[in-house]
Design a protein around this nucleic acid. Sequence first.
DNA 1: AGCCGAACTGTAATCGTTTTCACTGAATGC
DNA 2: GCATTCAGTGAAAACGATTACAGTTCGGCT
Lengths: 337, 337
Amino acid sequence: MSVSGKAAGIKDVALAAGVSVATVSRVLGNGPVSEALRKRVEEAVRATGYRPNLSARRLRSQHSQTIGLVVSDIRNPFFTAVSRAVEDAAYRAGMRVILCNSDENPEREELYLRLMQEERITGLIFAPTRATLDRPDGLDLDFPVVLIDRNAPTGRHDAVVLDNPRAAAMLVEHLHAQGYRRIAGLFGNTSTTGQERHEGYRAAMAAHGLPPAARFLAPYADAAEEAVVDWMAEQDRPEAFIVSNSLFLMGVVKAARRLKLPIPDGLAVAGFDNEPWTELVGPGLTVIEQPVQDIGRSAMALLFERLEAPDRPSRRLVLGGTCIVRGSTAARMAAAG
Amino acid sequence: MSVSGKAAGIKDVALAAGVSVATVSRVLGNGPVSEALRKRVEEAVRATGYRPNLSARRLRSQHSQTIGLVVSDIRNPFFTAVSRAVEDAAYRAGMRVILCNSDENPEREELYLRLMQEERITGLIFAPTRATLDRPDGLDLDFPVVLIDRNAPTGRHDAVVLDNPRAAAMLVEHLHAQGYRRIAGLFGNTSTTGQERHEGYRAAMAAHGLPPAARFLAPYADAAEEAVVDWMAEQDRPEAFIVSNSLFLMGVVKAARRLKLPIPDGLAVAGFDNEPWTELVGPGLTVIEQPVQDIGRSAMALLFERLEAPDRPSRRLVLGGTCIVRGSTAARMAAAG
DNA sequence: AGCCGAACTGTAATCGTTTTCACTGAATGC
DNA sequence: GCATTCAGTGAAAACGATTACAGTTCGGCT
């Protein structure tokens, strides 16, 4: 650490090493420099406590070495897990990550997209809100975009998503095999993910000749709780719920508790995202586990490929989920409907 | 959005508006410009789709308008909640946030601190690992630092922390009042937080003439699970556990389940962080709720005050926690020890 | 010996902004 | 009516790095 007042610049290093700034820059950037000078410069760097100024570097070299990551809910462990994977991959590639959280708020999201442009990011990994997805120019950006979790209907962008219909169908299959018939569904109304899961649910129910019964909710646990409480008061009350995210899972568990319905005998439930606590509540909750690690890594991989070949046609990577069976969907007891 | 190939710069805007670049810069930065020109420039900005280049702006103006946030575990909902609060406050002040996750890994942490310097951040909000805290020059950085969650023993830095000893003591008091006597403690060994909570635990136990029984663990749920399983096999097995974080809470619940001990009759438990799921497992888990929102906001406030008065003596803000009582610490049944 | 190319090195231009400084009119004060 | 301010404007100098270009040195080849 230098004792002088201001932070050392490349000029100070050059002076200390008795070379030109160009030479210093070259040893920093692995340019061709003789071993002797390289030694001297490295020594000077250490002595001055020099730290490159990334703003200057980025301005001059015209690439930011930065990738953006805009997620829709940072509290959702799915996204924190993905962002860790993305960050690891980025770091290994010598890139920085700017992580932003839109909170499902289109205005916030737009603000962050603008920020990304102003940062001149190299590429974006993006879980867009529905509003942005629906706007025809919502994804026309100055940099390559890889969508995660949510899918653009146009298919013009690279994307890596879960096989949502299949995953929802797996849950239906499982519940059906366990003896459940009146299976209801709760799906998020803010993302394509909810729609796709609903689609898989609907198809699987139809395949078994069962009537689907689905509702679409805002992404809050309370919404699910209320919906379940209401629903269970109706005639023909469901035996089981399939829900499309972990907030709803909480809501259903709360509702069951409020209604004093034991899980699974009073009410079975299955959902998405294998969060640590799903193992701990009640008899354990049956969930679809998403390959979060893979999703993050693959998104980065797609992004890098896109950067190398900007004109290659877009690709969608569809990953399978794993059904983690727990007590919340134990075989249905023979009982009166 | 311009149709031209390259992104528009301030020069293009100036050209389009028929003014000098200086004028454009001034309307962008609220400098003194006549109403007429301001109109023309704003129109030109819209027409060209101009977006400022933040690297250039930062380089020239010599302040980054960026604050750093280095947390030790992004999966910990405590930190995600804090970071949301920080980001909100920063955004309202027109600043950007760089969020980094050290994962309790000192090397990663150092790397990120270096990055912060290279980004020339305005200030840092920091939950340091113990290694960094113990190194005498670990917190000698080029910018103001506000510590959160963890506390430097030297007290040379601004900090906002929970009243950890008091919070742990609250749990002891509560358990004692509920009739528990053999109260064991599990504390994290990576942070000062664990130490402080242990200290409060120890003192409160002593105040009641109870013998303390504490162990320090690595921050994994499994570590806690094993510790509990082992411990419960010993003679003089604890009636209740106090744990210093939510990972340990999971571990204790898992252990209870493995040992077929009902909560709280077989084993009572209380911990920290009021995460949504703590309400749902077993009879509900008694926890200390931290004022996460407040912590984030206050950290930003301290940072801003420090920026305005760099030489003011350092200050520590100690916030109180709230004890959320749930079934996991229900009154002890009269039973054989 | 003389020439050529390879391997380094330094000078200076450049990246896209902000900001200093000088300058222009027009308005004000006497 | 003339000096004096003043608000608005533009030309050009930074900011701190990278990099194109032009030397310089040196070794090998003929």
